[in-house]
Design a protein around this nucleic acid. Sequence first.
RNA 1: CGGGGUGUAGCGUAGCCCGGUAUCGCGCCACAUUUGGGAUGUGGAGGUCGUAGGUUCGAAUCCUGCCACCCCGACCA
Length: 490
Amino acid sequence: MSKGITSRSEDYSQWYNDLVIKADLAEYSAVRGCMVIKPYGYAIWERMQAVLDKRFKETGHSNAYFPLFIPKSFFSKEASHVEGFATECAVVTHYRLKNDGNGNIIVDEDAKLEEELIVRPTSETIIWNTYRGWIESYRDLPILVNQWANVVRWEMRTRLFLRTAEFLWQEGHTAHATSDEAIAEAQQMLEVYADFAEGTLAVPVVRGRKTENERFAGAVDTLCIEALMQDGKALQAGTSHFLGQNFAKAFDVKFTSKEGKLDYVWATSWGVSTRLMGALIMAHSDDQGLVLPPKLAPTQVVIVPIYKTDEEKANLDAYVDQLSAALKQLDIRVKYDDRDTQRPGFKFAEWELKGVPLRVALGSRDMQNGTVELARRDTQTKETVQQAGLPDRIAALLEEIQDNIYNKALTFRDEHITEVNSYDEFKQVLVEKGGFISAHWDGTVETEKRVKEETKATIRCIPLDSKEEEGVCVFTGKPSKQRVLFAKAY
RNA sequence: CGGGGUGUAGCGUAGCCCGGUAUCGCGCCACAUUUGGGAUGUGGAGGUCGUAGGUUCGAAUCCUGCCACCCCGACCA
């Protein structure tokens, strides 16, 4: 491993790539556009899964699993859905290979599938086809199911974690007896996501609603959380859709109500993906590497021993055993890095690169003085403290670090929401400052598309807390009742 | 699919114009000295120069085809 990573200010993309690879999170694989998530990166993803999964269970959901392959005909049943995904699907056409006689393995043309199978880009269709058989009465509702899975979207251009041909995610798919209940579910899950992003990932998000143009293919309403990255670009971090009766109608899923009336069921779907890894990285990291918020970090505290002789090491071991046990009592995830193949300085740099929130270093000098050295990843500061009362001190410090990381990101985000009132101002802010631009918009798809063509900025969302305000569209001058957030986005 | 570029050790590269079997750094292995911020020294291992063909006594180098990857567009919930 070579020293250091590219500076953020020099070349943001290069910095991001360097960081992902050198922090041992992921790398590109032999398959175009596909990513290998390495053990350290996967450990972080597992932490995300654990926290989210707990919340899903707490809100009444269960996990299930549906097939990877979806018959092609399922897709065409919901018109806007097929249109939204058709251009990026992997298709299975054959089920067998053969030897061509010259030692080459080729596709056996005799083994052509009668109906092609689509590798799922999302599972609404196969799930709603399944739900038809599960639902007859209002007594069968609601169905509150989530699945952890991989999906494939054949993107032209990929970036580690942010846009890969295959990615990991969770997708919730719920069925309800009433429209109101489904809408409440979509809102509830958006709040679960927002709370997770802010409380666990320490990434502040804007809760909002997508415009018609940016809406999920097949949805009536798409809610989203939008985060801001350190280069001033926005990142959609999660979506929650109210699907109305669109999929129920497409897959003929009806139920008999309490009143004995036959009606189509109401649906939602919601998902977050390994893209959150990208959000996490780009929201907090610096030129020394990853910065992980303590609530998420697989390892919250790393202990590095400094010693010359075996006796010294044994002495340190005895103390670290005690300290580790005390920290584990407080549910702190601690790692003792006593590898004898690397020197302390190397370990310091390595754990900083990997974003461990807090480092404890101790050697014989400390043992004599009854102290340890504490080094914070977020502020890059060090202090020597007494061993007495250390576990509680560390617990408090981890909370302080969590808050500090969040507040830093929040300050940055808030400083990068700029209100503009003219198109010239809009373009100037976009180029010179970046971030979210809060501006009036006339509400038409056409205006939105023209702004995108001219500036590459899109409407990220109509914030849910946006207040009514009379104004005029910065592009057309037509009347507008509220501001929306524009930004360049990943 | 358009426009540009690059393929040489695990990674990053020099050599290519002007043909003679490959340079340097990081990493890796061994030993020694080291260990409170990415150690140092000495020795060592590792290469069908993307691939197929052509020219030549001789090709990483010149010519042709192919392949792969990267960047800029188009595309992207």
